[in-house]
């Protein structure tokens, strides 16, 4: 399937807003494509551009000081619609990790299914990371999936990830590969059900 993920060292982009819903990540009017590509251009569209398509200078993605493969966002990231386009947009833009203190369920699954790692940290760690990034955009953040830890500036926190999903990410496996291997059992179940 997808890229394999073990360890990532990168600068990061801070986006402190809470309850960022999938309508903000990718507004519905951009969901008309029938492929998975190209959504990155419209990531956070209405925060990033004016209605006349001018970049909004104080939005973080338009600020040249910030870049990197890690997005750091406020609590309850990805709530709202189940649109996987949100995960595709984040991936297509170039992010491989989203750090927050809380993720909505469906988004979390969608991210994991698209080689984007959601890292859940404590509120305190999140605040400190957001502040550090704002003071020093060059801060390197290290996300180590194998050891399940995230660190920056000598601060380190362990994070939880489901063992099965971790396997999938490290090896680039898909859920569907496993389910397809159960074909015979599923057929029998369907008939008996």
């Amino acid at each position: 399937m997808k890229d394999k993920f073990t360890i990532l060292r990168s600068t990061a982009v801070p986006l402190p807003a809470e309850n960022i819903d999938t309508d903000q990540i990718i507004p519905a009017r951009f969901l008309k494509a029938t492929t998975r590509e190209g959504f990155g251009d419209n990531l956070f569209r209405d925060w990033r551009y004016t209605p006349a398509d001018e970049p909004i200078s104080d939005f973080v993605l338009n600020n040249v000081s910030f870049s990197g493969k890690i997005l750091v966002a406020g609590k309850n990231f990805g709530c709202g619609s189940s649109r996987e386009h949100a995960a595709w947009a984040i991936y297509d833009y170039g992010f491989r990790v989203v750090v927050s203190s809380f993720f909505a369920d469906i988004f979390k699954n969608n991210a994991l299914n698209n080689a984007v790692l959601p890292v859940v940290v404590t509120d305190k760690f999140l605040q400190s990371l957001l502040e550090t990034l704002q003071q020093n955009p060059q801060t390197e953040v290290i996300v180590d999936l194998v050891n399940q830890q995230i660190s920056f500036d000598g601060k380190l926190e362990k994070f939880e990830i489901n063992a099965y999903k971790k396997e999938c990410l490290i090896n680039g496996y898909d859920d569907i590969d496993y389910l397809l291997s159960l074909n015979k059992e599923i057929r029998e179940f369907d008939l008996a059900h």
């Binding site: 189940s82 649109r83 996987e84 386009h85 995960a87 469906i106 699954n109 969608n110 299914n113 698209n114 898909d174 859920d175 569907i176 389910l179 397809l180 159960l182 074909n183 599923i186 369907d190």
Partner: peptide, 14 residues
């Protein structure tokens, strides 16, 4: 569910 999961269900009913 998300679209990857839609694919799973179409493919395997699970």
């Amino acid at each position: 569910i998300g679209t990857s999961e839609v694919e799973q269900v179409l493919a395997t009913q699970c």
